[in-house]
Simulated scan of single mutants.
Amino acid sequence: MASNVFTGLLNSSADRHSLFDDAQGIVAGSMLAVLGVSLLSGAGLLAGGTAGLAFLAHYATGFSFGLCFFAVNLPFYYLAFRRMGPAFTIKTFAAIALTSVLSEFVPGFIGIGQVDPIAGALFGGLVIGAGVLALFRHRASLGGIGILALYIQDRLGWRAGLVQLGFDCLILALSFLVASPAIIACSVLGAIVFNLTLAINHRKDRYIAV
């Protein structure tokens, strides 16, 4: 009996991920996202999506990024449950919770000092994009705008990366309240790299595993 349960956890197919597949995808995606956020933070940059909102709250209030990130995603769980289903919601909650916790502890283990803003935008945007791509491919997200982007892609066929880019531009426009034009310009560059990574590499008609 135990061997059958263990085999079931590992049993994936061409069109379906196993529970183990999903678990490692969520852990890997969250770790990459935290590393990318650390690069952006080291450069003093902002991000798009709910991470961008969390950065704004963090800079404005002084509360930790992890706490702000977890809090700003709370209103989106209802949409995730109603529109994307309980499995998506549970995996997304796990990814957000893990990312929030790692954001609190990783800086104590990986010290990222001063980062050039352009380099931070390029590498940070790419690494976060790779992390979110891993989550998307396991039917999860980092919440908020990612949930909306996946929902719109499923319903209307619009590329999730391009949908998120539009929302990100709006969020980054609010950044003029807390950052200089040069920092915002580099933040926009990071958002473009992040969203192009998603738009080019995540297409529903090419990747169908669930």
Score class of each variant (00 low, 15 high):
8 G>F: 09
8 G>M: 08
10 L>P: 05
11 N>F: 12
13 S>D: 13
14 A>C: 12
17 H>E: 12
18 S>N: 09
22 D>A: 12
23 A>E: 05
24 Q>F: 14
24 Q>Y: 14
28 A>T: 13
29 G>M: 06
30 S>W: 05
33 A>G: 10
34 V>K: 02
34 V>N: 00
36 G>R: 06
41 S>M: 12
41 S>W: 03
43 A>L: 05
43 A>N: 02
46 L>W: 05
48 G>M: 02
50 T>P: 02
50 T>K: 01
52 G>I: 03
52 G>T: 02
53 L>Y: 00
55 F>C: 02
57 A>G: 15
58 H>I: 01
58 H>K: 03
64 S>N: 09
67 L>E: 05
68 C>I: 02
70 F>E: 01
72 V>D: 00
74 L>Y: 01
75 P>Q: 10
75 P>I: 06
85 G>V: 11
86 P>A: 14
87 A>H: 12
89 T>A: 14
89 T>R: 01
91 K>S: 03
92 T>Y: 02
92 T>G: 04
94 A>G: 08
94 A>L: 13
95 A>I: 05
96 I>A: 07
98 L>Y: 01
99 T>L: 01
99 T>G: 01
103 S>G: 06
105 F>A: 07
105 F>E: 10
106 V>A: 10
110 I>M: 11
111 G>F: 12
111 G>S: 14
113 G>A: 14
116 D>K: 12
120 G>D: 09
123 F>H: 06
124 G>E: 01
124 G>C: 05
127 V>G: 07
132 V>E: 04
132 V>Q: 08
137 R>L: 11
138 H>A: 11
141 S>W: 02
142 L>E: 00
142 L>D: 02
